[in-house]
Nucleic acid binder design. Structure first.
Lengths: 148, 148
DNA sequence: GTCGCTGCAAAGCTTTTGCAAATCA
DNA sequence: TGATTTGCAAAAGCTTTGCAGCGAC
């Protein structure tokens, strides 16, 4: 993972700096997925207290452009997650009750939509996907029922 | 559509005001989908010049809570679209080249993910879905090839 | 009168940008 | 040396909030 990043970065005349390493390490070692820029900033600060928030933002943007991270625009703020080959297509289930996010890989290729009506779509190359389902998890439904 | 909204609103002790009517009309009559709050504000200003931006934001939030609108968190800003029964599940294809959004209804129910590994998901009730595919449309791919 | 709604202005947040210093090739 | 990168501070942009006045019931 890191090796690939280093190679990609250096091929483009960019540098693999301690900051970039610290940021990707913080993300990779975090148990939590879907980290916000602020969270990544705080995590990275643990190993590199001098790092600036702007650097984090610039690095996250770079990593997204390189395909290392995927940016998710959520309600409160953007969140980032490691993007690996096998994870290219997966679904997110966000519980509106507790805010928990469940993640489910899609084993097979994306469902083919009907492209009859829209010519231009017939030749659309999908680079990346993000599917979100909003609803309520079992715990929250049970909690709801008990209240009523 | 409007009738349903009025009924829902008044049932909850809320009011169906000229502003709310103007906003929903602006959205419904717009050819463009996926309008930003700013765009909705400007559209509504045409029929009601005195309206304030804060009112638009508050109304959009209300309509989302009522299930009349769906909020889409995109890169630049949040966007809103009418949420109708038949449209409950649909895919968005966003071209990273030109930013155009193609929309494709999913005829059949959502693809069933593998829920083996995650117990809590087995009993997840989906209220609403939003699927996004990012990539390049034909025009942008052609433009790219011509450049190289 | 009460309660909800509105418009304005100010504040709050996340994110971006400018710039001089630092760092690496 | 020349290019990229960084940290700080300031700015920008979207969205929310406080509040006094208005309007509906």
């Amino acid at each position: 993972m890191k090796q690939v990043a280093v190679k990609n970065i250096e091929e483009k005349g960019l540098r693999w700096t301690p900051q970039r390493q610290a940021i990707i390490s913080a993300i990779a070692n975090s148990e939590k997925k879907h980290l916000s820029a602020e969270e990544i900033y705080l995590l990275t600060k643990k190993t590199m207290p001098s790092i600036g928030l702007a650097t984090v933002y610039r690095t996250l943007e770079l990593f997204c452009a390189m395909g290392i991270l995927q940016k998710l625009n959520l309600q409160d703020a953007a969140r980032y997650e490691l993007l690996q080959k096998e994870e290219n297509a997966h679904c997110h289930y966000l519980c509106l009750g507790c805010g928990k996010i469940f993640e489910v890989p899609l084993q097979e290729e994306l469902p083919l939509p009907s492209t009859k009506n829209d010519e231009s779509l017939e030749d659309f190359t999908v680079v990346n996907s993000s599917c979100w389902h909003f609803g309520y998890c079992r715990n929250c439904k049970l909690r709801k029922e008990n209240k009523t």
